[in-house]
Structure formats: C-alpha cells, structure tokens
C-alpha cells in the first residue's frame, strides 16, 4: 500500500475519533440544555405511547383549596402562614419553614406538601409522631380544610 494511502488512513482515523466525540456530544446536548428544550417532567404523548409507565397518574378530585396554615395552640399560637405552591417543612431545625419551638417536636418533624390541588401531610420519622385529627400518621395523608394537625404541643389547621 502506498504511503499516501497510509497517511490518508491515519488521518482518517483521527477524524473518525473526533466524529465519535462530536456524536457523543450531540447526544449529550439534551442533558446539557437547560430550559424548555430539556423538557424535564411532562413526557409527550408519543413518549407515553412508547412507554406506558410514563403516563401521569390520575389527579385526585379537586376539593376546596387551603391558602393559610394557622397555628391554633402551642408556643406559636396565633401565627399563620400563607401557603404557596412549595412544600413546608415543620420541625425544630433552623432550615424548617415553620420552626417549632416545641420540646416534643423533632428537628425535621413533618412535611406539608401540595399534590394536585390538595395538601398532604407526611411524618418524617419523628420521635413523637404527628397526629391528623385523632389518629397518628403512618403514611402521607391528605389534609382537608379545618382538620387539625398536632405536633407535640402545637396544633395547627388549614384554612381557606
């Protein structure tokens, strides 16, 4: 084989290597892009058809929505908090949204989070437990307007 062909093949190999790199980077582009193109979250109809397990779960029926969390009893009694779209962490830790000054509350005690149009409360493995009405939480449960949540000595409820 002539030297010219050999040199061409050797340069061709370098080009091939870089084609591989560039194709990998093209394939990566989707992960790297931030914003609308990255399409995190909602899968498209086509993706759902191809992978049925991507289909969004049915949303629970809408109820009367709550807009404030009012603390009824306990050291913080009388205060209330506007509920936005983000979840709320209840506990004694400084990072908590509502910092409970309550000796019976754990650092990260419970979490109140929106799901669909309802709010759910979930115990985060607290020492003394979280009560919704009279029953202790064993799993995340929806909270309706007017139902009382008790953590240690603090009692709170959702209000419209």
């Amino acid at each position: 084989m002539s030297d010219l062909v050999l040199t061409a093949l050797r340069l061709g190999f370098l080009i091939l290597l870089w084609i591989l790199i560039l194709s990998i980077i093209t394939a990566l582009r989707r992960d790297l892009s931030i914003g609308k193109k990255a399409r995190t979250g909602q899968p498209t109809a086509r993706e759902v058809r191809k992978n049925p397990d991507l289909a969004p779960e049915p949303v629970p029926a809408p109820k009367k929505t709550a807009h404030t969390l009012a603390i009824v009893e306990g050291p913080l009694a009388g205060t209330s908090l506007e509920l936005a779209a983000s979840p709320i962490l209840l506990g004694r830790a400084q990072e908590a949204t509502v910092v409970l000054e309550d000796d019976y509350a754990s650092g990260r005690h419970a979490r109140l989070f929106p799901q669909g149009s309802r709010w759910f409360i979930e115990d985060l493995g607290s020492t003394n437990g979280t009560y919704l009405g009279d029953s202790q939480l064993t799993r995340a449960q929806p909270v309706d307007v007017g139902q009382t949540i008790r953590i240690g000595k603090t009692v709170m409820e959702l209000r419209p």
């Binding site: 995190t40 979250g41 909602q42 899968p43 991507l54 969004p56 779960e57 949303v59 779209a85 983000s86 979840p87 962490l89 979490r111 989070f113 799901q115 669909g116």
Partner: peptide
Amino acid sequence: RRGKAPASRTTPTNG
C-alpha cells in the same frame, strides 16, 4: 427534592 428546588421542575403527577 421539593424543598430545595420546587420551581425548577414539574413532577409527572402534577397534571
């Protein structure tokens, strides 16, 4: 996930 970056993504169950 929800506490730190609630606005940056939607969950598939959000409807």
